[in-house]
Design a protein around this nucleic acid. Structure first.
Lengths: 339, 339
DNA sequence: ATGAAAGCGCTAACAT
DNA sequence: ATGTTAGCGCTTTCAT
């Protein structure tokens, strides 16, 4: 931090006014004459004055900084959300501090600690996959730092949340496949430590039953969805006597991998195998056939989340309700037979 | 920022020691006895003390925060770079403040201003496409804020830079296509206000000449590479008598769009048309055929950039040299005929 | 090894 | 409308 930079005291001295007057002028206070305000603003310009936000933050007990905590930055959905947050934050005069948990609970805890120390005005977070406890979140509340969760949320933690109806997303997917005549539907799900994936699982089971389709246990997988996980699952499934004729993946990367696997094995999508991704990314439309998916309003989720947070920052803690954002099942060519 | 939180003064009072002693204990100073240190650390724990970094920053004239300025967050390469920065920063006890220029010079200027105000310890930036002047960068230097540039850099600005050899990337691409028998090579380039794209352009022209291939003016395009730009170029090119038989795109999204266009027009890649992308993203391997591309070490670039910056933060301004990172031309199935 | 005191640059209550 | 003063919470000389 530049040591020898110009301060309001320098300006005050040069103009023979009080530092507080300079502060007022620079903050556009109404308790100051236009004449001196102009004089001060000009002098500030002339000297190349640049506000020291650190000092202002300490004095005001407010940093105008929002902490954003996500599993990975390098992920289409999260980067969309951050994009929405950043855009709105920039317009509202807030800065954003970003940290990745890399799906580690330990890291998440540490991040919350340092963000508390940094005195961010509030935190927006999508919990890591292996977050089991909410102690670190309660500490935020104790430190008076508002928190809004999105996507992967913890329902037993009292704060505002923004999610989508994951149950419904899976339900619509299964129903669509069933109506299209697919019979052995498989699911490559995420880790069940996450609300999202348990909702998917529940919906998967219940909707299959409702559609009078069999729930074949080994077709209902839960994993971290790494490339190895997917590849292993494919190897096993397609060496069985009864192979799946449709797959629903929790991540778009998984869907793309399945699509690649199918091509390599000369399995025709959608004739031999239907494919639906419960998350979306542009690449789904670049492959052939294009992959049916659930489209989530990432940017919109980011904006809403920040709006809620700013509201809490300004007006104190609000009711801990959950906002459900709409999604769309976009049917592309991977999930219905042309015949 | 939590008003009523525990301060070192509270701890000092409870333990009847001086605040400075508490500070020493908590900062692991060696000028303190182990006995009192333990006592203080325990009490701090007990009271739930959480350091106020804002106060510490003001006092130390150092924020332990790095500003990261990129065109877009939602881009594979940049998010890889940020990923590298974030990882190393986290380990070194630094936080990162991220802002997107959205390729607007005005925004970039504004961002540099607010980051100066925030007193970040240093800035890592990839300049926006329409950055013409470097006045805003000189202001950083004047404010004693070290700057390291990567990818899109400004060669007439004196600071450390980390890039790749864009000329060579294009050269290798053209040569590869020429050796594979392609004759009418086209280039979908980026805006020539950027060093990267002017280097591509130069190499494109010169390598074609070296390979004794024609440089057809309308096959050498420079644009913002939006979906419309690409689509328009395709429409025009493929309605000509002499169509291109190979396309080199500056962005991976452009390559994916070309690949999609080819499929829709029943142009076979690589038989009718070869395709090379000068940037990479995973999706290039999910489409059929997989697309040949230049692979950039994003995470590595991020790490190196931060290393340079931290070095300047600790040891003052260094020589303004440019570090060239290696890239790889990964030849996939889109760029050579099987016959 | 510990304490006292000054100061980082700004804001805000109070006074005039 | 402007000045005076007292912090914000911490670090860091300088004493002891």
């Amino acid at each position: 931090m530049a040591k020898s930079s110009i301060t309001i005291n320098d300006i005050a001295r040069e103009l023979k006014v009080a530092p507080s007057t300079v502060s007022r002028a620079l903050n556009n206070s109404n308790k100051i004459s236009n004449a001196t305000k102009r004089k001060i603003v000009e002098k500030a310009e002339e000297l190349g004055y640049n506000l020291n936000m650190v000092a202002a933050s300490l004095s005001r007990s407010q940093t105008n900084t929002i902490g954003v905590v996500i599993p990975y930055l390098n992920n289409y959905f999260y980067s969309q959300v951050v994009n929405g947050i950043e855009e709105l934050a920039f317009n509202k005069g807030y800065r954003i501090l970003i940290a990745q948990t890399r799906d580690s609970f330990a890291r998440e805890t540490e991040i919350m600690r340092t963000m508390s120390a940094t005195r961010v005005d509030g935190i927006i977070a999508c919990l890591s996959a292996d977050t089991q406890s909410t102690e670190h979140l309660f500490k935020l509340i104790k430190n008076n730092i508002p928190l809004v969760l999105f996507d992967r949320v913890s329902f037993d933690f009292p704060c505002k949340k923004v999610t989508i109806d994951n149950y419904n997303a899976m339900q619509q997917s299964v129903t669509h496949l069933a109506r299209s005549g697919y019979k052995s539907i498989a699911h490559l799900g995420g880790p069940t430590t996450c609300n999202i994936y348990t909702e998917h699982s529940k919906a998967f089971r219940e909707t299959l039953k409702k559609e009078k389709l069999p729930l074949i246990p080994q077709f209902h997988l839960s994993s971290d969805l790494t490339e190895e996980d997917i590849s292993e699952a494919m190897q096993i499934w397609f060496s069985l006597k009864t192979k799946p004729d449709a797959i629903i993946t929790a991540s778009s990367t998984a869907a793309l991998l399945v699509s690649k696997f199918a091509r390599e094995q000369n399995l025709s999508i959608p004739d031999d195998l239907a494919l639906i991704s419960l998350t979306s990314e542009p690449a789904l439309c670049y492959v052939e056939p294009q992959i049916t998916s659930i489209e989530l309003p990432g940017t919109e989720i980011g904006k809403t989340t920040l709006e809620f947070l700013l509201n809490e920052i300004q007006n104190g803690a609000q009711n801990a309700n959950t906002t459900i954002k709409p999604f769309q099942l976009i049917i592309r060519n991977s999930s219905f037979r042309n015949s």
